[in-house]
Write a protein that binds this DNA or RNA. Sequence first.
RNA 1: GGAGGGAUGGCCGAGCGGUUGAAGGCGGCGGUCUUGAAAACCGUUAGCGGGGAAACUCGCUCUGGGGUUCGAAUCCCCAUCCCUCCGCCA
Length: 428
Amino acid sequence: MLDTAYLRDNLELVRGALNRRGVDLSTELEQVLALEVQRRQMLPKLEGLKREQNATAAEVARARSQGQDTTTLQQSSRQRAEEIKRLSVELEKIEQERTRGLLTLPNLPHESVPTGAKASDNVEVRRYGKPRTFTFTPQAHWDLGPALEIIDFERASKISGARFSVLKGAGAQLARALINFMLHLHTTEHGYTEIEPPFMVNSAALTGTGNLPKFETDLFKISGDWDLYLVPTAEVPLTNLHRDETLHGKQLPIRYTAYTPCFRSEAGSYGADVRGLIRQHQFDKVELMVFTQPKDSYDELERLTANAEEVLKRLELPYRTMVLCSADMGFAAAKTYDIEVWLPSQSCYREISSCSNTEAFQARRANIKHRPEGGRKSEFVHTLNGSGLAVGRTLIAILENYQEADGSIIVPEALRPFMDGRTVIQSQ
RNA sequence: GGAGGGAUGGCCGAGCGGUUGAAGGCGGCGGUCUUGAAAACCGUUAGCGGGGAAACUCGCUCUGGGGUUCGAAUCCCCAUCCCUCCGCCA
């Protein structure tokens, strides 16, 4: 959510920033502005009436204690009460609409974000490792997995449908090892506290992160008389951990990591990545999440991104890091780095992590503040999140990058302690 | 699923129609005393939104929403959450 005071004072800046996103939001913006003007006209009027009403009530009490007649006072007060009632109803309607409008406006891109119109305008900022040269034609994971009997797509579709998968034997073990490896790295070396959150969240939590009200169709909602959705990412429960709280300045930064499954409807992605594990309705992810003071948030974004990249370095997987252009960023983000891992079968880099600074956008929605040390006034924190990493896609990258001519998979060294010392995955 | 009991400031806890934004305690902050500290004592200490350069000032807030009333933390209704007991249960 954008700050209305900032919006009023920097209208042209806001217009320009929103335009950079490549969608025309001027109608929504004008509507919010008009409602804001109305609100600021009505508020003083209403407060004046309330002040009079309070004074009258005190007067009644005083007159009574002196045994005086109060019927005239009470009469005028009763009339004023009606007027107050009428005005508050009107004001509430205006505020509701204003908030609704505000909730549908995306975050403003940071000034360091390159302007662009599409994904191909994203800018590479660094690259790690060299894609391996194969002496044979590398297979895709959707061939390798079933051949090794560690991924089963057919049985998954029997029990759940398309875009689901079953991991079996060494495949299941590999996924579990990846989760443990990532959590171990982030908790012992990167300073994150591990959280196991609920895997279902309510609509208030989803509004806090920006998934609602605009993107309900991306979510799986629990049917029946429940205000619950399956988590699309651990970002939602982690960010909302401190909803409606004022944190102490010295507590910050707070760093959380969590493993959760993630559930996404993938509405509108028909035909895209239909094969394999790339785009599933359910996938595992280890998430990184930071609450920080505003002045530190861009340093923290670099740190968090480096923490995610470290996973790939340890696994010796080639990757590149992109800064997303203004049009390719998510709704809540002010700046986003995507980390893309090399997939030999596709001869290209594919997204495996997305690390964002949302600045105060989510904090304002979720009402998460902090009181700076020594400072009097509380202010909103900045929140950051990133995948550290998507487990399914990491598993794909390992299968494809570590495959041998015979279809077996070498287990990356860093992972072996988490795989009971196993060094290779081959068919039985 | 059934039967009860709760929700008050950072925390504990009083208040149960009229200067109560809220006693008291704890905690925090400042001071006196002390070589320093502790103890003791004194003082101070909620948030949010308007207006104002500021001093300050107005409004809202006792889980949330609605109602009664000139006036609600206090009375009534609804919701949410928590607790206890019973049933069921990984």
